[in-house]
Design a binder for these strands. Sequence first.
RNA 1: GGGCCCGUAGCUCAGCCCGGUAGAGCAGGCGGCUCUUAACCGCAAGAUCAGGGGUUCGAAUCCCCUCGGGCCCGCCA
Length: 491
Amino acid sequence: MTDETPLERERRAKVERLRTEGREPYPWSFVGRVTSDAVRARARTLSPGEEAPEHPARVAGRVKAIRVHGRTAFADLEDRDGSIQLLLRSDTMGDAGFDTALRDLDPGDIVGAEGTPALSKRGEPSVHVRSLALLAKAIAPPPEKYHGLQDVEERLRRRYLDLMSSPETRALFRTRTLLLRELRRYLDAAQFFEVETPILLPIAGGAAAEPFVTHSRYLDADVQLRIAQELPLKRLLVGGLERVYELGRTFRNEDLDSVHSPEFTELEIYWAYADYHDMRRLIEGLFGHLAERVRELLPDSAGAQQGARDFTPPFATVDFVDELERRSGIDGILSKSPEELRSLARKVGSTVPDSSAPGVFLDKLFEHYVEPHLDRLTFVVDHPAATTPLAKRHRSRPGRVERFEMFYRGFELGNAYTELNDPDEQERRFREQLGSRGEEAYAYDADFVRALLHGMPPATGVGIGVDRLVMGLVGAASIKDVLLFPLVRPR
RNA sequence: GGGCCCGUAGCUCAGCCCGGUAGAGCAGGCGGCUCUUAACCGCAAGAUCAGGGGUUCGAAUCCCCUCGGGCCCGCCA
């Protein structure tokens, strides 16, 4: 129990009084309600001061503000679709009913009202209330009615207050949900099959990241939370599912900052008998489709309209090696020894361990010289082979793999390959990783290699950070803005 | 992990530089007002100034530590 403020004591006293009067402060239901939109639409057909008594309506929602003028009062009621003004008059409700209603009512209360659609004399769509029912008494007060909840920490820790007081926050999360629905619809229409693969695994693989570790009582062994969906999904290609995707939570034991969250939503798509060129076309189509949707969903948000423009094809393309050489002035990057790459990376401030794979130093150089310039949505293509243990070598460019990464505003949005399906090469690359990077290396997954021994069709795959995708589309500056309940330190 | 910034009433903010023991608005209480919409007018009330320690006759204010948060950097392919 938290400490009670004087204001909360006051409201508790109201609850007690209601109970002694035999009135329930938390009743069970309010049947037959319509949303504010329906009443607003009806009221708009009226002229100021006019009512529509032949169409009585019941509305329910949270009281945002109350304005009392003696024997008349106004209250703003907010529901899922917006808000509607309640008009209360003593000559409609009776003096006793009017007094009781106002004495009981506080901002933040959930109420139901029955009355007549009306347009106020000042032209505000309203319900002229016959009867008002308290549906849930708010003991704690809502955030400040005009400024809302400003404190960033409180907005994250108590998202319900942020949502309650900010229509923009509600619109943003509604948009997120609708974009994910659209994303599924798009992939379903393209004959992809949504699947669910394990989150709890003996060993998390498919990426280089520190996993969360927990314990299975049944197995009497530690298990890990997945850091990627890749390896189970590729097993499904071996099994013949051909086109699969998974949209779900992935976990990495890392910091939370403006583009990272320890738990994040990842989309991975695997597509047999297609290569990374096909995947690029699929992704471009998907992005363009989502951009169209966000344009409709958030027409009043400058950030979202910018996002919609930025996610409309065509997109920029840069070659990993050419661009790195151009930006850094370093020539012959592909022929540098691991030692040379390491010293170049050191020069630009990288502090990764000496034992890291050569590809890590290349990544560091790319991050330093190129990524800050990738402001528009850009496809970076054909990475050096050393960077990527799960991609197939390029069919015509020695030392390269068939891969593209997508960047936007300096952060990585996603990563795709023509997938490696040669079991012997896969085994060799896993072993190289083991030799080089210690705990952060790609885990050796013997069963995955065995699966490849049975033959995985040629395929392409992609992983996309969905929270980042949503950030880009809606113009959010931080991943926390698109996560309902981002991880915060308990207090 | 490093740097900078923030934490004052339930909420939104002022006061801090330059030390004299906390001020407003919203919300809540009481009173007034029959078309307002950040309604308005009057009265009264509401604060361990994030927590701890120090300097000082005196600390919201200056110093140190701790906690929580934000931004940047590092780390996180």
